[in-house]
Design a protein around this nucleic acid. Structure first.
Length: 590
RNA sequence: AGCCCCGUAGUUUAAUGGAUAGAAUAGAAGUUUCCUAAACUUUAGAUAAAGGUUCGAUUCCUUUCGGGGCUACCA
């Protein structure tokens, strides 16, 4: 039992003994640092059932609690807040039990159930950009956090490898490609395909304006432009399994996957398996048919199939086009069902997708429920805000995007420039140096993005390079390295339990350390790496004030010196582990 | 038009309905042979507006204002 629940149960007993009243719970929170004490009971809520003054109640409670349990040594009352001081022994004991645990904070899985986390899920005709970076970092980090909180996790992505948009780049490549390949042009595969997607759009716009000049309405022109009609024809051919179209489709997809794989590698994210819409949309169609027979869906005159969600406060939603081809929703229904078929032990899924799709997922989860899948209650949309540039929204078709590969490279370059300016790292060889630049540059970018609440939009100014000082990744990485440097100065940190006096800074540090497991559980519940980032920065700050309060290595008492080294070591474990949850690496030497 | 999300110092941000709204960065002033200065110390600066619920509101409710998104036979 942890100290909070101990306090809680004593407080409840106390109220029962003193006032003969049964209280379900009392509110306990950590005492704010500017007051004396460790845990605080807020007595205001109790006054509703106990007719007395806040002061009197708090004092009586305090006396009772301190008398009942010797882990609580004293108390003070400040206007309705009962602050309880927890004994040094308690914290020392706690610390001694975790000080050697390098996996401190992490919980081993206790069930065989799996949580599937989907993230990344790019279109195969656009290279990855800054928005995808946020997606990837969030998805990967949430996977790490869920794992650390004791769940089995499968990382996956759904690859949008079919649909009209794919046909667009294919049509353009056939028309303008002259047989170009990534090999022949030395262009990364995803970039090459992206180029043709842009070319399609250019040509499409050109044709529209020509048609409008010829007197067509804009609406008609958009529908009848030859190149679009060609793409639509290609989609029909593709769904019919036309050999030539399928062959081209496969070739171009392979180019893209190769390019993506390279970006994922640099970004440090990975996947346990992949789903392809081309392989799940048929299953989706099957369930549309089934739902139709069960009256979950209905057919309109033109043959299109819809789901009526008006009773749930939503609109009607199309699930199959009038020409019988699948829409986005069809595929997602199929994919979800396929996943549960493949992994019967999955009991929840997390979809990492931007908040412009909030409505889509609301509808998807609802439709799955209507189709009778009980697990639809455990589906979670990890929705996140867009990444904006100072110039506004990123639009890949208009070329106003920050390319993922370029940005990652830029971060490394910035890290290099700063390092060179500071003249560190001079005793490393080129290879080691580049590794360090890479880890620091990525640390800056990852932390910058992950420390923000996923719901909020991020304004990213590429010109103002990401900070390296203050509440940043590199600052934390640096703190870790500094601890390593201290630990390296001595042969061995004793494992003997320390039983002497504990200074305030030391106690604060232990308190902060002990909060790590709670932070992980909270972050796992709300799927928010930001919480870990905030915890981590607090830990580093508390460590810094501990570190600056008195020299560690020059402490004259040997046992106290060892104690402070033990503390430093435990903190370094926690920092390393927390960075790990954010997907941020550390350098061993700097 | 309807629905959803967001609004906190110049900027990036924190705060299960709890105490004097916490940081970082940029700004101002200072610290230099230090367990690594990518540091430290000091200083100034914020809850968009108005109501309501509450002992107590950045947090919950209502309205207004601002920013974004969705409501596609696009994905």
């Amino acid at each position: 039992m942890n100290i909070e629940s101990t306090l809680k149960s004593i407080a409840i007993t106390a109220i029962n003994d003193l006032y003969k009243i049964n209280i379900a719970t009392v509110e306990i929170q950590p005492t704010r640092s500017d007051f004396e004490g460790d845990l605080t009971i807020v007595v205001f809520p109790l006054l509703k059932s106990i007719k007395t003054s806040p002061m009197e109640l708090a004092n009586k409670l305090g006396e009772y609690i301190v008398g009942a349990e010797n882990s609580f040594t004293s108390f003070n009352v400040v206007s309705g807040f009962l602050n309880i001081v927890v004994s040094d022994e308690y914290y020392l004991n706690q610390f001694n039990s975790i000080k050697e645990k390098s996996d401190f904070g992490f919980v081993k899985p206790t069930t065989s159930d799996y949580t599937m986390v989907e993230y990344s899920s790019p279109n195969t005709n656009k290279p990855l950009h800054l928005g995808h970076i946020r997606n990837n970092l969030l998805g990967f980090s949430v996977s790490q956090i869920l794992k650390a909180s004791g769940r089995n996790v499968l990382k996956t992505q759904i690859i949008n490898d079919r649909g009209i948009h794919i046909c667009k780049s294919m049509v353009a490549w056939v028309k303008f490609g002259n047989g170009e390949t990534p090999e022949s042009t030395s262009v990364k595969g995803d970039k090459l395909v992206g180029k043709y997607y842009v070319l399609f759009d250019k040509e499409y716009k050109k044709q529209i304006s020509l048609l409008v000049e010829d007197g067509n309405s804009e609406e008609d022109a958009k529908k009848n432009a030859a190149i679009l009609v060609e793409a639509q024809k290609m989609l029909l051919k593709w769904e019919a399994g036309d050999d030539e179209v399928v062959k081209l489709w496969k070739t171009m997809n392979e180019w893209v996957y190769k390019g993506f794989a390279q970006t994922y590698k640099t970004l440090g994210v990975d996947f346990d398996n992949y789903y392809y819409e081309s392989e799940t949309y048929l299953l989706g169609k099957e369930f549309i048919k089934q739902g139709l027979s069960e009256n979950v869906f209905f057919k309109k005159e033109d043959g299109s199939v819809w789901c009526d969600l008006t009773e749930d406060g939503l609109d009607e939603k199309i699930v199959l086009r009038s020409d019988g081809t699948a829409v986005y929703m069809t595929q997602d229904i199929g994919t979800a069902i396929q996943r549960v078929k493949d992994y019967p032990t999955i009991n929840s899924m997390v979809y990492t997708v931007g908040n412009e799709q909030d409505y889509h997922f609301k509808v998807l989860f609802l439709i799955l429920k209507k189709l009778g899948f009980g697990w639809s209650n455990n589906l979670h949309h990890l929705s996140y805000g867009m990444v904006d540039l100072p110039s506004g929204k990123m639009k890949s078709r208009e070329g106003t995007v920050v390319d993922a590969d370029d940005l990652l490279e830029e971060m490394t370059t910035t890290a290099r420039d700063i390092s060179l300016e500071l003249g560190k790292l001079e005793d490393l060889n080129e290879d080691e140096k580049n590794k360090v630049y890479n880890v620091i540059g990525q640390g800056a970018l990852k932390y910058f993005i992950l420390k923000v609440d996923p719901k909020k939009r991020i304004l990213f100014d590429p010109k103002e390079s990401v900070d390296f000082q203050g509440n940043t990744g590199p600052f934390i990485q640096y703190s870790y390295v500094r601890i390593q440097a201290i630990l390296r100065k001595i042969d061995k940190v004793s494992v003997e339990d320390y039983n002497g006096k504990v200074e305030a800074v030391e106690k604060d540090l232990i308190k902060q350390l002990l909060m790590f497991p709670t932070a992980i559980q909270k972050a796992a519940n709300i799927h928010s790496p930001a919480l870990i980032a905030n915890y981590l920065y607090d830990l580093v700050k508390v460590f810094n004030s501990f570190y600056h309060s008195s020299p560690i290595l020059k402490t004259s008492f040997e046992d106290r010196k060892m104690f402070r080294l033990q503390l430093s070591k435990a903190v370094s474990f926690a920092i390393k582990n927390a960075l790990d949850l954010l997907g941020i690496g550390v350098v061993q030497k700097m």
